[in-house]
Write a protein that binds this DNA or RNA. Sequence first.
RNA 1: CGGGAUGUGGCUCAGCUUGGUAGAGCGCAGCGUUCGGGACGCUGAGGCCCGGGGUUCGAAUCCCCGCAUCCCGACCA
Length: 581
Amino acid sequence: MRWSRYFIPTLKEEPAEAEVISHKLLLRAGMIRKLTSGIYTYLPTGWKALQKISAIVRQEMNRFHGIELLMPAVQPGDLWMESNRWDAYGKELLRFKDRHGRDYCIGPTHEEVITDLIRREIKSYRNLPLNLYQIQTKFRDEIRPRFGLMRCREFIMKDAYSFDMDDPGASRSYEGMRQAYVSIFEKLGLRFRAVEADSGAIGGSFSHEFMVLAETGEDTIATCTDCDYAANLEKAEVTCQGPDCDECSMPAERVSTPGLHTVEEIAGFFNVSPDRIIKTMLYNADGKPVAALIRGDRELNEIKLKNILDVQTLTMATKEEVEKWSKARVGFAGPVGLKVSRIVADLELQFDTDWVTGANETDFHLRHVDLRRDAQISGYFDLRTITEQDPCPRCEGNIYLTKGIEVGHIFKLGTKYSQAMKATYLDENGREKLIIMGCYGIGVSRILAACIEQNHDQNGIIFTPAITPFEMVVIALNIKDDLVREKVEKIYEHLKGLGIDVLLDDRDERPGFKFKDADLIGSPVQIIVGAKGIKNGVFEVKIRHSGERMEIPMEYFSTQIARIRNEVLVHYGLSKNNNYL
RNA sequence: CGGGAUGUGGCUCAGCUUGGUAGAGCGCAGCGUUCGGGACGCUGAGGCCCGGGGUUCGAAUCCCCGCAUCCCGACCA
């Protein structure tokens, strides 16, 4: 491709509308333009990158027995009413009526459509298992679209759905997809982690999120230094073991603590460290008062609490509720004598004693509290958020926290949709059974943003070889110089002949201008051709990710190009064997 | 949906406090000089100053009402 005849509207200045780096660079590199809030046009290089991502997704999906199809973007409301999601999905579902007044929506996902298809077409166990996927534009009317391609309303997504006869089959399908996903992100050349995610009511470790690691990620991941354990912060298990301790030798004692209610104030007053204090947090759980106990220096994980209590809604108690339930002002609640429907305590509280707690009386605390002796605890559970001080729940390794961007999510659906929509098959014995489903999503357009979040510098994007719109940019320093023109054309043709996707910067611009643009659009390799080099019989190569520049004699062109290509692949954990190009 | 901010040539912004002929830089067109990290000079085109009401002799500027976009919170690929 010749730059002069192509369309890459780069921007020198930072667009005011963008805040995050990928958004800024996608705009500056001329890859996207906003049409309206959360809706973007993919310009040629942006679209090219998306197609490259899709190609790898497609290749790996096919390799793991996925079969591609395409479903409609517009879906009838009836189907959504059947799955009970017409009401449940909320305002993210963009609805409209056609000229006859019938309800429709623009698909934010395709469980209904695929389940409808399957229930009509699949009747026999002989047709199972089956894995169908599609790559297409979806629409979610996000409350607040932001961060460019990271969270748009209209976005491109790959969605796969698996259909199995039984649970073991569904597990095999799930495992196949997990492997496919690992392979996809490896081939994309991204640093990522597959993390255990909160799977909600389904239970087990049947949900994984695939996170691209980037400092700017919105999610926090807990990862083990030794084994391959990785989990979403919300999900990461905190283990705690220890010998049972003896009962506290001293009886609980009521102490006047006027006006003191934060952990720090209490710790200071009693001259103990915050880990000797129990925080008593009151919640409204489906309308019932519940208390959660946690050490003063710890953080409660509300998602864990919600799962343990198995309730629909969990909200922190209001000031009024606290006063009503604890019979004291906020800051003086404690487990001793507390009248609530349940008191749950964090695991580590059962291995220690002699605590400081609130006294359920304004301006009073208790010390020398022993939970077993003085309080009625309904259970000890993993309630807190993991920290880097905690051990790995699977091995003896340490935990460290990193940030990530969620780009894929796989989970077992079970029979949720097959039941609601009556998708059944006949087994070997002629008995009717529900099809077991799984669904597997990848945010294709989000991957583009995540790739940039992970790989960029002050000068612009640093694309991985699998995603870059152009593998190499050939920069003609002075296109009006006949020698340069001639040489650069030759190199361009030669590279094309090698099957390399190459962009020739043949614009009549100053060198600095071209260097800046080349860095901005992020091709892994730049080949710089100028009059000086030609005179000396060399051409120059710049490696984008390292900034390394080298002069290479013309006669070694082919071998050196091959070497450099391979070097770049290796840098991204790839090798020639990965023939994705 | 709550909280905050911003809307002025294609882009980034100034002007608004204190009302009086709409500005700069970049970009764009032409000419010349340049040519290894976003050059310089000259010339030029390009504006319902977000929209609608009001106040005023006069509104980009003051007041009211909308709309849009961005940022912070709860949701998600």
